[in-house]
Amino acid sequence: MAAEGAIRSPRAGDRNFRFTLIAPSIFVLLLIGIFPLIYLLLVSFQGITMIDNDTSFHGLANYRRLFDDARLWESLLHTLIFTAIALPLELLLGLLMAQLFIDHLPGRQVFVALLVLPVLVAPIVSGATWSLMFDNRFGPINQIFGWITGEEMTLLWTISPELVYPAILTAEVWQWTPFMFLLLLAALSAVDKSQLEAASIDGAGYWRTFFRIVLPAIWPVMAVAILIRGLDLFRLFDVVWALTKGGPGTMTETVSIFTYVRGFQQFEISYTSAVALLIIVLLSVAILTALRRVELSR
């Protein structure tokens, strides 16, 4: 850190320099971050809907409604289900892949460069791609299942209630496992080799070495990766939008999709403001707690 020697201001005119530097950024962040927040708060106490521009004071009516809105809490549950399944899967698969590539392997650089590509695809495009893959008639997935089972497959991946979750999770895990893989590969490469050798001389087995030496060494990176992916999964929107739009019914509706539908299709302006504030408050608490525990960029 710069703790040892921040440049001391040698001339009087420099005093305001550091504030001049942050001014434009802070201005933009406040404009887009704080100003709308205040506006949200204001609107959430009113009663504006598509048909009624009612700006009178409604007190906590919209907030009370939050608690009775089963669809909201279900969407929160769906989001948590996606997160609870996708996050550990991505982490585990990413770790296994990183283990595979940590030792010398001819052409390793090429493999890594290729494996990274899914991360760079726009999530909405990745959703579109998987809807091509899952097409019941013209997609390759039913075709492959057909080869395996020997009979014609016409599974409706984006419509059948029992298949939509596997379909969305496949797309999600496909896109972000490489992210975990890349970060964990970098972390594994940085593990102190001499410690590993020492452990092997002492006769420590693979698992013992892994839990006692490797895991503690890669944990800081792992924690950051979990934080980033966890927050990304909480805002899950694009892939679900492309594959199911939250359907069938509201079966795969995430919090983001719920908010979008309420705000931009049903135009329940005031109620959506309360929902958005709820999300912001929940997440802010989670983020600030997590940031205090995770060593990000130190």
Partner: peptide
Amino acid sequence: MIPPIAVVFP
């Protein structure tokens, strides 16, 4: 890290 949907609505 705030979900975009909550930001974009206001």
